[in-house]
Amino acid sequence: MALFADISKRDISFLESEFLTYLLMRFFIGDNSVNINGSDFFYIPVKNIVFSNENTGEKVSIETETIDTCKELYTALKNAKSVSLLQLQLKNETMSIDICLKNAPLRITKVGAPKSIAEDYVDKIIERKLYVRTVFDFYDIMIKDFVNIRISNEWFDFLKNFKNFLKTV
């Protein structure tokens, strides 16, 4: 019998919902800005958030137009449920892109971009391709931030900050 588990076969899928929860927590503690290729963006969770409790399999779907004041949302977070679906808007001064992120496996399942302003066919493709790239750049930056904080002691400070925030609502 092996004394140690094979690390390469460890199930680390919990990190996916932790990542989505991390995005939501960052929003609530006011750290929702991100610089993408020199341009300042921020993100806002919108409309639909699905929480799940991996131990019990319980799922809670919350649809709201007012994320900031939604009591059910805070209750779900206080009950240690983690996010399995997160809809958000990625915005800057000139554009707003709708994104839906899901776990198991972690993926971007929906992207709604602004109407193209280009008239020429090639320009339109280039513009819309840029939106796709912006979404994945955002995703990569957030994953990088998440990994860097998740493997350090900052993670515990981050969780403490968020728990303190939850006590105030």
């Binding site: 690390i7 390469s8 460890r10 680390i12 919990f14 990190l15 932790e18 929860t21 991996e54 977070l77 240690a80 449920k81 983690s82 990569d140 994953i143 990088k144 990994v147 860097n148 998740r150 493997i151 993670w155 969780l159 968020f162």
Partner: peptide, 21 residues
């Protein structure tokens, strides 16, 4: 893996235990 050049960070990530939110 594609965005973080320090490989030890990915190994560390694979070793973390689930967070208690």
């Amino acid at each position: 893996r594609k965005n973080i050049s320090e490989h030890y960070k990915i190994d560390d990530l694979k070793n973390v235990t689930p967070a208690n939110f």
